[in-house]
Amino acid sequence: MSYQCIEFSIKEGVATLTLNRPETLNSFNVKMHEEVWEALDRLMRDDKVRCLLITGRGRGFSAGQDLSERRPGPNGEAPDLGQSLEVYYNPLVRRLRSLPMPVICAVNGVAAGAGANLALNCDIVLAARSASFIQAFCKLGLVPDSGGTWLLPRLVGRARARGLALLGDRINAEQAEAWGLIWKVVDDEHLMQEAMALSRHLSTQPTQGLAYIKQALEAAEGNDMDAQLDLERDLQRAAGRSEDYREGVAAFKEKRTPSFTGK
């Protein structure tokens, strides 16, 4: 399938999704949402895909929503921004977080508004040294969306979350790393090389087990200790029945590198 707003490819177990509207800093319009959704459908139909890498084309990762699609109507009626979240952003966030494989994000430039929060919803975020993150919503009288109000306090704590959300200040990649907002800063010229190396590594790992880890960590945000212990028991029981567990144990005993199939 040919795309207008994204690039999408699958190679060596890694699906690479590149936002491709560089003239708008990869801001999201309806067409981009539709193409991203179709690409996610496509990777889920391919059982060889064991990791997803997301990045952006040009000098920015994503500036969030394309505001030209959210202007008042011809009679001055306000756009329904809640509907935009209900139809597009919220389903995308839920789907990214629930994918049964690691999701890596390589932030190649500015990530603002929903663009920042979509990046932060990925499992591991690498950022170019020149990248920056902006919770730009307050500049427009809006609320951080795409999970922003849930993510920020958990990633950086209450005080910093409120500062980021209420002030809308730009923070650079080094500060984002120091605050625990992202995993790692990488020199610009090495960003994609390191992101791809990480993605290829993860695509060789026990994918089902990694999916169980994601499920456990996600549930931990709302569980008490007893509920989490029960979940760990149930997931460990399922993981122990996987082909990858058998392979991992055999490789350990035979002192060789395991060859995981992701099953």
Rank of each mutant, 00 (worst) to 15 (best):
K48Q: 12
C105D: 03
A119W: 00
S68I: 11
G76W: 01
N90Q: 12
S2G: 12
F133P: 01
T257A: 15
L235T: 08
F61K: 01
R162Q: 15
V49D: 05
L120Y: 06
A197F: 07
A15N: 03
A114M: 14
S199K: 05
L17E: 04
E77T: 10
D188I: 12
K253D: 09
A128L: 07
L152S: 05
Q236T: 10
A78D: 06
N117T: 12
G209W: 14
L53N: 02
L155P: 03
I171T: 00
S84E: 14
F28H: 01
T207Q: 15
G109E: 04
K253P: 06
R21I: 03
K253V: 09
E254P: 09
G262Y: 02
A78G: 07
T24P: 05
V49K: 06
Y89Q: 07
F137W: 09
I10R: 09
A106H: 04
Q236E: 15
P153F: 05
R71V: 12
Q4W: 09
S98K: 10
I124H: 09
G147E: 02
M101S: 01
I213E: 15
G60F: 14
A239P: 05
S62L: 01
H33K: 00
F260E: 09
R170W: 13
L118H: 00
Q175R: 13
P258Y: 04
E243T: 13
L217F: 08
E189I: 12
E23R: 10
G64Y: 01
Q193L: 07
N75H: 14
P91T: 08
A173E: 06
G76R: 10
N75G: 15
P22Q: 01
L210N: 08
E7L: 13
A227G: 03
I124S: 07
L140M: 13
A220F: 06
Q193W: 07
Q215L: 12
G209F: 15
K31S: 12
L166E: 15
D41S: 01
P153N: 11
V49Y: 03
A227C: 04
K214W: 09
I6F: 00
G115I: 03
A251F: 03
V36W: 03
A176V: 03
L92D: 03
V110Y: 14
L167W: 14
R170L: 14
V125Q: 06
Q208R: 13
M192I: 06
D230A: 09
A219M: 11
F28M: 05
V125H: 07
A165L: 13
N108S: 09
N172K: 04
G209P: 08
F133Q: 05
R50K: 15
P258E: 05
S84H: 15
L19S: 02
R233D: 11
V156K: 09
P144S: 09
